[in-house]
Amino acid sequence: MSGEGPSLRERRRAETQRMIQARAMRLFAEDGYDATTVNDVARASGVSTMTVYRHFPTKEDLVLHDRYDPLIAARVAARPADEPLVRRIGRTLVETTRVVVGPADEGTGTPPVPERDLLLARLRLMIDTPALRARHLDSQYATQKAIVDALLGDAPDPDAEFRTWVAASTCLAAMHVALMRWAQEDGRPDLPGLIAAALGAAFGDDFGDDFG
């Protein structure tokens, strides 16, 4: 029945994307981002170069592409409408991250989470590669827009739109700092906890518990 989930074609497309991205990340880690070509990624993935470009229009997209924006948008829209904006957005970011990365693995024997490992590899590359750091701004803008659209709809009041953009951009900036620290510490800390702490630092220590 329609509306019950992605179609078989959509699932296969998503699987192909994940496979290509995983192979690309392995090559980037082994040979370096600049030294690896899209043709190299295609050969390692067993697909044509055109197929790679169909899923990832630029080389940078092989690192920066993710499927988180629709998940964040759906979750932020589902939160109580009477919550203050920064709490509504901040809690969504913390909870969505917990779904993506799973619990912290500091000596717990927790099995690795594929999405967690992919996110960590992507962040390490972004830190080390100037072209990716520059393109990350586009990615963050897309996430901000997804949040604003989810909260306000098609014809927002200009003042409400302004406040929502400010809240979304500030929350995402705090999250970015937490992500960078998490990557620099090899993914050992609890990422949702770091994001909650960053949001607490941005909006006041008494806000920290609200985001955890």
Rank of each mutant, 00 (worst) to 15 (best):
E60V: 07
L125P: 06
I72Y: 05
L62Y: 12
V47Q: 00
L93R: 00
M50Q: 15
L120R: 14
R133G: 09
D117C: 02
V101T: 14
M50E: 15
D117S: 13
A73T: 10
A78H: 10
P57N: 09
N39R: 15
L120Y: 12
F56E: 08
A42F: 11
R122P: 09
L123P: 04
L119E: 13
A121N: 00
V52Y: 06
E83I: 02
A121Y: 00
V99E: 15
I72D: 03
T108R: 14
P84S: 03
D105W: 04
L93Q: 06
P70L: 11
D66T: 06
V101F: 04
L125I: 12
S45I: 01
P103R: 08
V100L: 14
A131R: 10
R79H: 09
I89C: 01
A121P: 01
Y53N: 09
E115W: 02
P103C: 08
E106G: 09
S48W: 06
R91K: 15
V41Y: 00
L64I: 14
R87G: 05
R91Y: 09
G46M: 11
T96M: 12
A42Q: 03
E60H: 08
L71I: 15
V99T: 15
D128S: 14
E95H: 10
L64Y: 12
V100I: 14
L125G: 12
P57Y: 13
T58Y: 09
G102C: 06
V76K: 05
V41C: 02
D40F: 04
P114Q: 07
A81R: 11
V38S: 11
H55T: 08
R87S: 13
R124T: 07
L71K: 13
P112T: 06
P112W: 09
P84I: 00
D128H: 10
T58F: 11
G46S: 13
L71T: 15
